[in-house]
Design a protein around this nucleic acid. Structure first.
Length: 889
RNA sequence: GGGUGGUUAGCUCAGCUGGUUUAGAGCACCUGCCUUACAAGCAGGGGGUCAUAGGUUCGAAUCCUAUACUACCCACCA
């Protein structure tokens, strides 16, 4: 005998190993239709968190369904080298060992980094296996492996030669901790508390007169080259053209007039610091002003700060000191608290400094055009659709992409310098050739050239992912078959970082979309609606969740309340320090319980003995037909829901179907009496139904369904649920199912009556249906009467005009008497009837009003009007019965 | 400043192109059950003027307009 409770632990391990052994996840090109998904590559040194589990569960569902539908399903796994994040981790690890990055060579650093990657890399992929992800592991890729790096280099050179990639001096976002430039997308803005310093710049030759400017970064005054006012500002008109002195150092700067200055903000006067502010730089350009940079690359002040006590101090330390210094010099007029948006580095969370520097940029305008049209024209479809708006807005206001990074962990930019010359080529040898030609000097050696030190942005390799994982830059063999991919599943937070750029790359290098559909998942949030993140420590341990509820339970929990694009509030109270889950997570618990329900349905069915010569009872004839139709309806529904990516709806529908329709209704209908055998035909049908239900559920909960699949019958080698044929949609009998709903309602009414009158659920009672043509035709449905008798524990069910003692009620449009000896509470009965009557009256009235409206009858579709007429006649029938019943009181 | 979602039961959400018995589910709650698959269970029950105000329509939770609240995206802020 099977144990009473389902245990997920070994089951899941065993089946995963079984699937791997049979190579079910492996895909090679053949003549079937491909179904391709590339994983959003997680950071190579990352660990599985809630977002990954949601995202990869969804991909697995889509891939498993496609596989069962006979498509050549290929899900490519892999990891991203995540340059800044990983480099930061390696730097920190080295620091702990007492090694400073500055003291070792690039080669030594990379050695350490690869050692780190080999140690921690791929943990997350192993964790995905626990979740049940059916990736083709033989295809596992890494964005920094040789082939993928070669693709990056090739693409870089290609863009450069097409004139779409250039090197320029620009104001960029500088991360002083990672000591690298960041793209605009890598800077996150949040409102923070800051102070506005009102500082007096004295007029040259005067100790009292001057201009007060407002700044939140007083340490940058040493880089000032002017003070600007609005040309129409009368307060300062007399000063324009004169010179004022920078406090503390007395360096004179001109007062200039420019429209950019807002008279209403602060004091109406603006200090101009071209090296440390985007707008100041622009003004500086207009006026031909000098650029003075007061910051070192690590955020400390350099010698331009002049004062010895400030030089070498961090910008925030210096800012604090400036308060005292300015105050002492009598130039600090006012300190004002205010809130402002501060930009921080997405990776290091340090405050980003605008900085002027020489970097490599991709010209986005030409790339964006086609990528925008693709989404606007529906060639690439977004689910949900409204992310198109976000995408359109970004794409039409796109700025050039800064792709160079001052890091070592990444693909080194393939540019070689020789004096003023730059040669962008795939290899040093080719660069040397170009250099010899360009300089006319055949004696040049590679050692004369100096390769660019910078690497490219991580996303410069990820945007090629759908092509590069199939070696699409080297040969056509695989890419021609698998590309474009079918669907991309990712979070909406990387729509600009990644999705948009992949679309650009797709058109640029393959001339077509990289994927047909994009399914955006929501963010997983905690009970306070905060995004779950490592820095907040508000995420439960994924592996513990998987262990506690089983992968099937967790998959159910994550998915059951996660519509596309909608955020998921995942409420699992846990201990922050240990990440141990304290209370049950309602969602996963429900999933685990569902597994147990399936398991027990299996126990029931497998506990039956089958009799070959037993005739099929009438009730079973009805049950089998009813369930057959119900199943067809659900199959059709699954197909529709999948087509619209309404996966959480699809799962909920299966849950209800299996728990209620299959277990609570169907199995109870056919269940033989204690220790009695079941007839062979019904048994065979039951196994078939169970099996098909497992197939429908398999994409969502692969392990428990595979387990049950095998326990239902003896299977040949290779007859596994994962590769079984997904049920195709067929017609079903709506009218018959409607009758079934009425039958269920009747059973529920009998149970309710028993409850209300304190009758035992299994007391054998008699039910009388009032004689009428409609009652006769209802009970003429084969096996219906026997089914109702069985489910409602009725000793007798007759159609007659007898009115036995007991209670009466309405079900459908018929009147019923449930006979019993006990006295009934007449007042309570009457009150209940009055309530029902009231409801029926207002219902009939509203339908009547509708039908007596000529405009409705004239303009509504025939089917709608007919339905209203049916509602009216049914309602009237019920009303009449209720009125008659009330007459008794 | 520009834009996008959301507002339906105590909580989390379905309700897709307006009509399917004057709103559904899960969890929570109440009542009764250790009934022979399952107490990780079974049978029942209560609970919503669909944010507000207008409008379109024969008919609105559903479409339109405005307002409020809420979440988020982009840009900018000396």
């Amino acid at each position: 005998m099977l144990p009473k409770q389902y245990s997920s632990a070994e089951t899941e391990q065993n089946w995963y190993a079984h699937w791997m052994r049979h190579g079910y996840f492996r895909s090679v090109p053949d003549d079937r239709e491909p179904f391709t998904v590339v994983i959003p590559p997680p950071n190579v040194t990352g660990v599985l968190h809630m977002g990954h589990m949601l995202n990869n569960t969804i991909q697995d569902i889509l891939v498993r369904k496609a596989r069962m539908e006979g498509k050549n399903a290929c899900w490519v796994p892999g990891t991203d080298h995540a340059s800044i994040a990983t480099e930061a981790k390696v730097v920190a690890m080295l620091r702990e060992k007492g090694i400073r990055k500055a003291d070792i060579t690039r080669e030594e650093f990379l050695e350490h980094a690869f050692a780190w990657k080999d140690k921690y890399g791929g943990i997350i992929l192993e964790q995905l296996k626990t979740l049940g992800a059916s990736c083709d592991w033989d295809r596992t890729r890494f964005t920094m492996e040789p082939k993928l790096s070669a693709a990056v280099v090739r693409v870089f050179v290609d863009l450069y030669k097409k004139g779409k990639l250039y090197r320029a001096h620009r104001m960029v976002n500088w991360d002083v901790e990672a000591k690298t430039v960041l793209s605009n997308e890598e800077v996150v803005y949040h409102e923070e508390q800051a102070q506005l310093f009102h500082v007096l710049y004295r007029l040259e030759g005067s100790e009292t007169e001057g201009i007060v400017i407002a700044t939140q970064r007083p340490e940058t005054i040493f880089a000032d080259v002017a003070v600007a006012v609005n040309p129409s500002d009368e307060r300062y008109a007399h000063l324009v053209g004169k010179r004022v002195r920078i406090p503390l150092i007395d360096r004179p700067v001109p007062v200039i007039a420019d429209d950019y200055v807002d008279q209403a903000f602060g004091t109406g006067a603006l200090k101009i610091t071209p090296a440390h502010d985007q707008n100041d730089y622009a003004i500086g350009q207009r006026f031909g002003l000098e650029v003075i940079d007061v910051l070192n690359e690590d955020g400390t002040l350099n010698e331009h700060a002049v004062l010895p006590e400030l030089i070498g101090k961090d910008r925030f330390v210096a800012r604090k000191m400036m308060k005292g210094l300015l105050d002492a010099s009598g130039t600090l007029v006012k300190l004002e608290d205010y809130r402002t948006n501060i930009g921080r580095s997405e990776r290091t969370n340090t405050v980003v400094e605008p900085r002027l520097s020489l970097q490599w940029f991709v010209d986005m305008n030409t790339l964006a055009k086609q990528a925008l049209d693709a989404v606007e024209g529906g060639e690439v479809k977004f689910y949900p659709d409204h992310y198109r708006n976000m995408y359109r807005h970004w794409m039409s206001n796109i700025r050039d992409w800064c792709v160079s990074r001052q890091l070592w962990w990444g693909q080194r930019i393939p540019a070689w310098y020789y004096g003023e010359h730059v040669f962008v080529e795939e290899t040093a040898e080719v660069a040397l050739e170009s250099a010899r030609k360009a300089t006319g000097n055949p004696a040049l050696q590679i050692s004369d050239l100096r390769q660019e030190e910078d690497v490219v942005d991580t996303w410069f390799s990820s945007w090629l992912w759908p092509i590069s994982v199939f070696d699409g830059f080297e040969n056509e063999k695989e890419v021609a078959y698998y590309y474009p991919t079918s669907v991309l599943v990712t979070g909406w937070d990387i729509i600009f970082f990644w999705v948009a750029r992949m679309i650009m790359a797709g058109y640029e290098w393959r001339g077509e979309r990289p994927f047909e559909h994009v399914y955006f998942t929501g963010m997983v949030r905690d009970q306070y609606r905060r995004k779950m993140s490592k820095s907040l420590g508000n995420s439960p341990d994924s592996m513990e969740l998987l262990h506690k509820y089983g992968a099937d339970g967790v998959r159910f929990g994550l998915l059951s309340s996660s519509p596309a694009g909608g955020d998921l509030v995942f409420d699992a109270p846990f201990d922050k320090a240990t990440k141990q889950i304290i209370n049950e997570s309602a969602l996963c618990e429900q999933g685990r319980n569902f597994c147990n329900k399936l398991w027990n349905a299996l126990r029931l069915v497998k506990g039956w003995t089958v009799s070959e010569d037993l005739p099929v009872p009438a009730a079973n004839l009805y049950a089998v037909r009813w369930f057959e139709e119900s199943l067809e309806r659900r199959i059709a529904e699954q197909h529709e829901l999948f087509a619209e990516y309404r996966l959480s709806e699809a799962l909920k529908s299966l849950y209800t179907f299996i728990w209620d329709d299959f277990c609570s209704w169907y199995l109870e209908m056919v269940k033989p009496d204690y220790e009695q055998p079941i007839d062979a035909a019904t048994y065979a049908a039951t196994l078939r139904f169970f099996e098909r239900s497992m197939q429908l559920l398999h994409p969502f909960m692969p392990f428990v369904t595979e387990e049950i699949w095998h326990r239902l019958r003896e299977r040949r080698e290779g007859d596994d649920c994962i590769v079984s044929r997904y049920p195709a949609a067929a017609d079903f009998d709506k009218a018959f199912l409607y009758q079934g709903d009425i039958a269920k309602d009747l059973v529920a009414k009998v149970r309710e009556a028993r409850n209300n009158h304190q009758l035992k659920p299994r007391d054998p009672l008699m039910l009388v249906a009032k004689d009428s043509p409609s009652a006769r035709s209802f009970f003429a449905i084969e096996g219906l009467r026997e089914t109702i008798q069985k489910l409602a524990f009725l000793e007798k069910l007759e159609i007659s005009d007898a009115e036995p003692q007991g209670t009466s009620f309405v079900a459908g449009t018929e009147k019923y008497f449930l006979a019993f000896e006990k006295a009934v509470d007449a007042e309570a009965e009457k009150e209940k009837l009055l309530k029902e009557l009231e409801h029926a009256r207002s219902f009939v009235a509203s339908v009547q009003a509708k039908l007596s409206n000529e405009k409705f009858v004239g303009s509504a579709p025939a089917a709608v009007a007919d339905n209203e007429r049916k509602k009216l006649s049914d309602g009237q029938a019920r009303l009449a019965i209720l009125e008659e019943m009330l007459n008794k009181y």
